[in-house]
């Protein structure tokens, strides 16, 4: 078993997927379950309930009228989308304790994650791709592996950050040198172990190296580009000072036009602050 698998096994024992997410997933896969059944599971967790209602009422969803109940939110947002939002919120809560020992400012880290999620969702919407909310979750989780490395190797990761700064390298380049794998590898392995959908695995695992895939789907392409937009606009801070290189192949496959970038960024900025206030509150 290599070091990456050992780390992921270790993490899996400590950071298992939250019960509420597992229960919701079971209900969604059960054809006899109703939105009320799902609502009952969510409502047990008051903080989650409050955040989901805030989200359902946000400009991000642009729903007419007030959404007052989880049951209504489930109906409006949809089963699958709600499940993915619960995943994003749960992962955020799962790693909320990193703060004090982290060599990175975690507020800025989550802002970067949200920026990438929002940008991915806006790109998907702009291109008319189905399920844009799934793109938010994929973007939000793209640096999941860095959380694992920060949590388990805070001192070693500080060395990675310092070395990257001293040598003008990207963090993932130094991670490979120091650990033998990158945060993208760790995130991908964790997602596989959690048995989450393949689109999440591919988007997270290949966000720095999409061109290695023989067939690139929209998730991989849009998360790669969304990450670049987030760095370019300096929304939050993931630890990298530089905008990652844009893969020409991915840009062409995304079918995005250069003229789309300005309206996309404007939309991202419009939605970003609100999502930050929902998902970063309470981060240390």
């Amino acid at each position: 078993m290599n070091d990456l698998n050992i780390l992921v096994r270790k993490v899996e024992k400590i950071s298992s997927l939250p019960t509420v997410f597992v229960k919701i997933s079971e209900l969604i896969n059960d054809p006899t379950s109703t939105s009320s059944d799902i609502a009952h599971v969510i409502e047990v967790d008051q903080a989650l309930t409050s955040r989901l209602l805030q989200l359902a009422n946000s400009a991000f969803y642009g729903m007419p009228g007030k959404v007052n109940t989880i049951s209504r939110a489930v109906t409006i947002i949809g089963f699958k989308q709600l499940q993915e939002l619960v995943l994003a919120i749960s992962v955020r809560d799962q790693f909320a304790q990193i703060g004090e020992n982290s060599p990175l400012n975690m507020t800025s880290f989550w802002q970067h994650s949200i920026g990438c999620g929002v940008a991915a969702r806006v790109l998907a919407t702009f291109q008319g791709t189905p399920n844009p909310d799934s793109f938010f979750v994929a973007g939000f989780l793209h640096d999941l592996g860095r959380l694992v490395l920060l949590e388990h190797y805070p001192q070693k990761y500080l060395e990675v950050i310092e070395k990257a700064k001293d040598t003008d390298c990207f963090l993932h380049e130094v991670e490979l040198e120091v650990f033998g794998f990158t945060h993208a590898d760790v995130g991908g392995a964790l997602i596989k172990n959690w048995q989450l959908p393949d689109f999440l695995f591919e988007a997270v695992n290949y966000h720095h190296s999409p061109e290695v895939l023989s067939k690139v789907n929209e998730y991989v392409a849009f998360i790669h580009i969304a990450n670049i937009i987030t760095h370019a606009c300096q929304l939050g801070f993931s630890g990298n000072e530089f905008v990652p290189p844009l893969s020409q192949q991915i840009w062409e496959e995304s079918k995005l036009k250069v003229s789309a970038l300005e309206p996309v960024v404007n939309k991202v900025i419009e939605q970003y602050s609100e999502m930050v206030s929902f998902l970063v509150a309470g981060v240390k």
Binding site: V243, P245, W251
Partner: peptide, 20 residues
């Protein structure tokens, strides 16, 4: 500085630099 690792001749990067 932040775009120093990017391809400065790529039209998408030129536009992103302008927007940034």
């Amino acid at each position: 500085h932040i775009f120093s690792k990017s391809n400065h001749e790529d039209p998408a990067i030129i536009e992103l630099k302008r927007i940034s």
